[in-house]
């Protein structure tokens, strides 16, 4: 008996989409390199200013500087933003403006391969950014334990979850104006996922809501890794993000099929 519907996640051919994106971005390598500076600026700004104003925070069983508290949350945020922006803007462009995928569909590749290939690409990009972010974090002393290295897979998982959902979301966008609506969803998630201050500052009823936010899940996971506080809750965060990514990917494949092969 089959409980789950038959799921197709694309084939090995999806790697060709990754290859395509790498070739396109090779002409823009400077952009990837310069991406290193963004986390550096953010972390420096925190270190110079807010660190002194905010002082130490208690996180779990230890006191940490504000930068140590915020840095993993910002890593999660940058993984989210990178994945969502690329999935939305670039995929929207390829899907509805340049009709890049129409050409791809004349080859042995299938719609599922396209969706999966775009996710591969999000993971590659995500890992490049996460690596440079983590390097800055460690150099500036904002990492709280050797477990911080687990933040790399954690950030890649975050990219997966958000890129899949972003791919699915982009199929509903009609024009560039709809991107305002995206910002409308993204900004509250960004500001209210307990990335800038501990969740305990929220009134009790709001804390439950904050916990639902995918960015909270990711930030909490990465903070746990960075501060060496790994426990059962880490597993919950991981499952949340994996499920979110898989659902996003299935919906994205389905929507791509409807749009590209009517």
């Amino acid at each position: 008996m089959r409980i789950f519907p038959e799921l197709h996640f694309g084939s090995r051919r999806s790697l060709r989409i990754l290859e395509r994106n790498v070739v396109i971005y090779r002409t823009q390598w400077l952009m990837l390199v310069s991406g290193f500076f963004e986390p550096l600026f953010y972390l420096l700004s925190l270190g110079i200013g807010l660190n002194h104003l905010v002082g130490s925070l208690s996180a779990g069983d230890r006191l940490v500087t504000y930068a140590m508290f915020v840095a993993p949350g910002m890593l999660a945020t940058s993984a989210m933003n990178g994945a969502v922006i690329d999935a939305l803007f670039n995929t929207f462009f390829k899907l509805k403006v340049a009709h890049t995928y129409d050409a791809v569909l004349a080859t042995p590749l299938d719609v599922n391969d396209i969706a999966l290939g775009e996710v591969w690409w999000a993971l590659v990009r995500g890992s490049i950014y996460a690596t440079s972010f983590l390097t800055c974090m460690i150099i500036l002393g904002d990492a709280g334990s050797p477990w911080v290295l687990l933040c790399l897979p954690g950030a890649i998982l975050t990219s997966f979850a958000f890129a899949s959902v972003g791919l699915a979301a982009c199929t509903w966008l009609r024009s560039w104006q709809d991107f305002d609506t995206v910002a409308l969803i993204q900004l509250p998630i960004f500001l209210f996922s307990a990335t800038f201050f501990p969740i305990t500052l929220y009134p009790g009823w709001l804390q439950g809501l904050v916990r639902c936010s995918p960015l909270y899940q990711s930030a909490a996971l990465l903070r746990g890794f960075s501060l060496g506080q790994i426990g059962p809750s880490s597993a919950v965060h991981i499952i949340y993000l994996v499920v979110m990514g898989l659902i996003g990917l299935v919906v994205a494949s389905h929507r791509f099929r409807r749009i590209l092969t009517p």
Binding site: L50, L53, V54, G55, S56, L57, Y66, Q177, D178, D180, T181, A183, L184, L187, P188, L191, F192, F196, F197, L201
Partner: peptide, 28 residues
């Protein structure tokens, strides 16, 4: 969408930075 964002974004920013981070700053 942009009218909503014009009203909502500053409000959210102030609530998050001003109240949230502000709480941490005033405590220290």
């Amino acid at each position: 969408a942009s009218v909503i964002s014009t009203f909502l974004f500053p409000l959210l920013y102030l609530a998050s930075m001003g109240l949230g981070v502000g709480h941490l700053v005033s405590a220290h």
